[in-house]
Simulated scan of single mutants.
Amino acid sequence: MKENLLKQGNKSALIAAIVNAIIACIKGVAYFFTGNVAMFAETMHSLGDAANQFFVFIGSALSKKRPTERFPNGFGRLVNLVLLGAVIIVGIMSYETIKEGIHHIIHPTESKGIFINITVLVLGVLLESFVLYKAMTEIAHETKINAKGISLLWKSFAGLSRAKPATKLVFMEDLVATLGGLIAIIGILLSYFFGLHAAEGIASILIGIMMFFVVGKVFLDNARGVLGEADEEMEEEIAQYIFTNPEIKDIQTLYVAKEGEDYHVEMKLEIDSTLTVGEANAIKDRLEEKIHEMKGVTDVIIEFDEDDAIPTWQREKSTGKENE
């Protein structure tokens, strides 16, 4: 049973965890021999990402566990809780990275082994870019975006908000990791060729700040997920389908709650009062089957009421726009 759950874990997070663990070991060895503060920052960054993404993989797998008597609502939001805990790791790493950078600016020292440092960082950037590309393709798959080549880069940003929490985290962390590697390379080159030894400390601080940005973004996104954030885009998509059924006259309520990587759908619909119970049940079965086919939907609750000839759904939408 546990093996089956692990197979359902987020693949991007698992790949990223393995790659970052390898990168962290390589960077750690390079830092041990050279004492370069920018390399220290990158070691901490990759180590934090590896631990973070491993927990994300476990959380995304456990969130697929079926409901039990003790937890009848399932474990969909578990991935959000795991991600909230995971950002603490990145936050600690961010603090240590910035602190070490400040110390190096105040007490700049000349580091050695530029060839080792640059080689390791270039290798790290290439590996991080590979993981970032995998995360981009996963975003395109999850959000049904048709993109290839260079268009995948900007279209993945456009679909980021609709990606699964685990995929979103991997994308943001490896984007920052790739940029952080480039910043570290620049800092080392400035220090070696121009004698600006403080540049390595500045690079460390910039990397730490970017890590803090990921912490803040991930924390806010998953705090909303734990509370059960409504997905207005999917609500509108479902509403458009509902109104393709002529028997449905109006929508009194429609609520789509995102629970981890899953969606819980509830609605109360107004139908023609002349319909029989059998006809109403047939409509309900048809709606449930279609909505269940939408990616990520795990639970659909549908209630019917008589048509009161008042367009509730349209009025709610227009009122919302006016309030904006």
Results as ranks from 00 to 15, higher is better:
residue 1 M to S: 13
residue 2 K to P: 04
residue 4 N to K: 11
residue 11 K to F: 10
residue 14 L to A: 05
residue 17 A to K: 02
residue 21 A to L: 13
residue 22 I to N: 07
residue 27 K to G: 05
residue 32 F to G: 07
residue 35 G to D: 05
residue 36 N to C: 12
residue 39 M to I: 15
residue 39 M to R: 07
residue 40 F to P: 00
residue 44 M to L: 15
residue 44 M to S: 10
residue 49 D to H: 08
residue 54 F to T: 03
residue 54 F to Y: 07
residue 57 F to H: 08
residue 60 S to V: 03
residue 69 E to W: 10
residue 70 R to A: 13
residue 70 R to C: 07
residue 71 F to M: 10
residue 73 N to R: 15
residue 74 G to A: 08
residue 75 F to T: 01
residue 77 R to C: 00
residue 83 L to G: 03
residue 87 V to K: 02
residue 91 G to E: 11
residue 92 I to Y: 12
residue 92 I to E: 08
residue 94 S to I: 03
residue 94 S to L: 06
residue 96 E to L: 10
residue 99 K to Y: 11
residue 99 K to T: 07
residue 100 E to Q: 11
residue 103 H to F: 12
residue 107 H to Y: 14
residue 110 E to G: 14
residue 112 K to H: 10
residue 113 G to C: 06
residue 113 G to T: 07
residue 113 G to R: 11
residue 120 V to M: 09
residue 120 V to T: 12
residue 120 V to R: 00
residue 121 L to A: 11
residue 122 V to T: 13
residue 124 G to K: 00
residue 124 G to P: 02
residue 129 S to Y: 13
residue 129 S to R: 04
residue 133 Y to C: 05
residue 134 K to R: 15
residue 134 K to G: 03
residue 139 I to W: 01
residue 142 E to G: 01
residue 142 E to W: 05
residue 143 T to V: 14
residue 158 A to T: 12
residue 160 L to R: 04
residue 161 S to D: 10
residue 161 S to H: 15
residue 167 T to Y: 01
residue 168 K to S: 06
residue 168 K to Y: 09
residue 178 T to F: 14
residue 179 L to E: 08
residue 185 I to Q: 06
residue 189 L to S: 03
residue 191 S to T: 09
residue 191 S to D: 10
residue 191 S to A: 15
residue 196 L to K: 11
residue 197 H to I: 11
residue 198 A to R: 13
residue 202 I to V: 11
residue 205 I to F: 07
residue 206 L to N: 01
residue 207 I to A: 02
residue 209 I to D: 04
residue 212 F to P: 04
residue 212 F to V: 14
residue 214 V to P: 00
residue 216 G to Y: 12
residue 217 K to Y: 15
residue 220 L to C: 08
residue 220 L to N: 11
residue 221 D to Q: 10
residue 223 A to S: 14
residue 228 G to N: 04
residue 229 E to I: 08
residue 235 E to F: 02
residue 240 Q to Y: 10
residue 242 I to N: 01
residue 249 K to R: 13
residue 253 T to F: 05
residue 254 L to W: 00
residue 254 L to I: 05
residue 262 D to F: 15
residue 268 K to L: 08
residue 269 L to P: 00
residue 276 T to D: 09
residue 277 V to G: 07
residue 280 A to V: 07
residue 281 N to Y: 14
residue 284 K to F: 02
residue 291 I to M: 05
residue 292 H to N: 12
residue 295 K to I: 05
residue 303 E to I: 09
residue 304 F to W: 07
residue 307 D to P: 06
residue 311 P to E: 06
residue 313 W to G: 10
residue 314 Q to H: 09
residue 315 R to S: 11
residue 315 R to Q: 15
residue 317 K to W: 03
residue 322 E to W: 12
residue 324 E to F: 14
